[in-house]
Design a protein around this nucleic acid. Structure first.
Lengths: 118, 118
DNA sequence: AAGCGTTATGTACGCAAAGATATAACGTGA
DNA sequence: TCACGTTATATCTTTGCGTACATAACGCTT
């Protein structure tokens, strides 16, 4: 390293996610989707804000609810605004946990990147 | 968390890589490829051992050499065994560095996973 | 000269993931 | 009763990535 990567153009980056029975199901994408659902009250609008198809968004929501026992997103069809979705308290906890984890991860990567420049 | 993910079926996992001028170029795949090239003395055989096409392997090698200034893989055409490839000392250093980084990362994830079970 | 296994490179094919589109059901409000 | 926006779901199309295949050059061996 001392010779190869010490010019500041290199850095360590990475990704973290949560696995349930071996398969990845909760990472940056689902986190943002949950946040947008909370904001907009709608899977449809959340998907649009992320430039994602409704189908993809729905599949993510569906898998989240399947793998985690308790429903993270609760949906309703029909009604005042045609329906809508909101996220559960469990989902809010999960988001908080992931964000703090990501912050620790960010520091980890920052430290490792710093080692490169020494 | 305390309520949602405390049954031991969930764990934190992730991936780490090295970026040069914004683009990912060095992660688990390239590391293994370099190791296999060192073992076999051939990009071709290394690719086969990894179930990867030669073309893909060559593209990885090519990008590695491009992004890192010094050549990590030195190749030769023709000759006794038709040619072959070997990895430079810089490449060996890079592999060592990545493996130690990955070990620290593994511990990080292990600790974070442990927090889930508490 | 001919053969071998390799590097190096272009092109064509397949497949899986993602997107686009269509449709039904729902419940409130006008 | 109809319109609306949403969830829910099936089907068709597209697109991007990797593989497969083909070919040339190379240099040592026989």
């Amino acid at each position: 390293m001392r010779d190869i990567l010490t010019n500041g153009q290199f850095r360590v980056n990475g990704s973290l996610w949560l696995e349930g029975n071996g398969t990845r199901f909760f990472g940056p994408g689902p986190v943002e989707l949950l946040q947008r659902i909370e904001e907009t009250g709608s899977i449809n609008q959340a998907a649009k804000k992320m430039g994602m198809s409704y189908k993809k968004a729905w599949e993510i929501v569906n898998r989240l609810n399947e793998i985690v026992g308790s429903p993270l997103v609760v949906t309703a069809t029909g009604g005042e605004k045609g329906g809508g979705s909101s996220i559960s308290d469990d989902a809010k906890q999960l988001i908080e946990w992931y964000l703090s984890l990501r912050e620790r991860f960010r520091k980890f990567m920052e430290e490792e990147s710093l080692k490169l420049t020494v």
